[in-house]
């Protein structure tokens, strides 16, 4: 993996609340080109809110978010959409379009934003399905897929346009440990193959261990600790320890 020093995602002092509930309280994060960073935290702590703020799905009240040198907050929809072409987003429950087949789900991003020919589109879809090991599922509806299969298709859809950045929202949540591990390894291999820079939100330590260059622990609206997996595992901080003990 090439680890240059340029910062692809720069989150600075971001505040976001819903009514009286302060979710993010001045959070900051820098993700370097080629890095794979993981955010750990309990449910409901604001992990998804942070990811959604980075792609402009939610608008924080205060702070700065720069993605590939463009300031996301207050950006016009058209520019935001241009920027989003470089970002893949894997949703927590895959968010496959349930009225479309697997093939159509994968074609969707291509049809909307490229003028690729029919045969190119088909080739690309098949290639994606091979990458995630699900060529058989091409004509199935999302409702016919298991949880793990949905996640794989969600993954395939997120990277079909070869984005520079991918954001994963709990890619292994709700899966059995074996499938979860397969998904984590799949993520790692795809990232290495395509040079993806990523942020992964999870509470699955095994997943963090496999894919993380750097881990951040989110609590009470900010990152309380950060470090590599081994550093955090050896940490004496009670909250971090609690986190690592639950899992092992």
């Amino acid at each position: 993996m090439t680890q240059s020093n340029s910062v692809l995602i720069d989150v600075e002092q971001v505040w976001k609340s819903f009514g009286d509930l302060d979710v993010l309280k001045g959070i900051s994060l820098r993700v370097h080109d080629g890095s794979s960073d993981v955010i750990l935290g309990r449910s409901g702590i604001g992990k998804s809110v942070l990811l959604k703020s980075i792609v402009g799905l939610l608008i924080p009240e205060r702070g700065h978010i720069d993605v590939m040198g463009h300031s996301v907050i207050g950006m016009k929809t058209r520019e935001l959409n241009r920027l989003r072409k470089n970002i893949g987003y894997v949703f927590q429950y895959a968010a496959l379009y349930d009225s479309l087949t697997v093939r159509e789900n994968l074609e969707f991003p291509l049809r909307k934003h490229t003028d690729a020919s029919e045969s190119d589109i088909t080739d690309r879809v098949l290639e994606q399905l091979r990458l995630v090991g699900l060529t058989d599922a091409i004509d199935k509806m999302p409702s016919e897929l298991s949880g793990g299969m949905k996640k794989r298709i969600g993954l395939a859809r997120a990277i079909i346009k070869r984005p520079k950045i991918v954001l994963y929202d709990e890619p292994t949540a709700g899966l059995d440990p074996i499938t979860a591990r397969e998904i984590s390894e799949l993520i790692l291999s795809l990232e290495e193959q395509f040079g993806i820079t990523s942020i992964t939100v999870t509470h699955d330590l095994e997943c963090a261990r496999i894919i993380a260059n750097q881990i951040y622990i989110l609590d009470d609206g900010v990152f309380q600790h950060s470090g590599t997996y081994d550093e955090l595992k050896a940490s004496s901080d009670p909250y971090t320890r609690a986190f690592f003990q639950v899992a092992t």
């Binding site: 959604k52 792609v55 799905l57 959409n81 241009r82 989003r84 072409k85 970002i87 987003y89 949703f91 927590q92 429950y93 968010a95 496959l96 379009y97 349930d98 969707f108 991003p109 909307k112 934003h113």
Partner: peptide, 10 residues
Amino acid sequence: EQIDALEVSA
């Protein structure tokens, strides 16, 4: 989150 998914795919 399918609506969010539409939005992030521009």
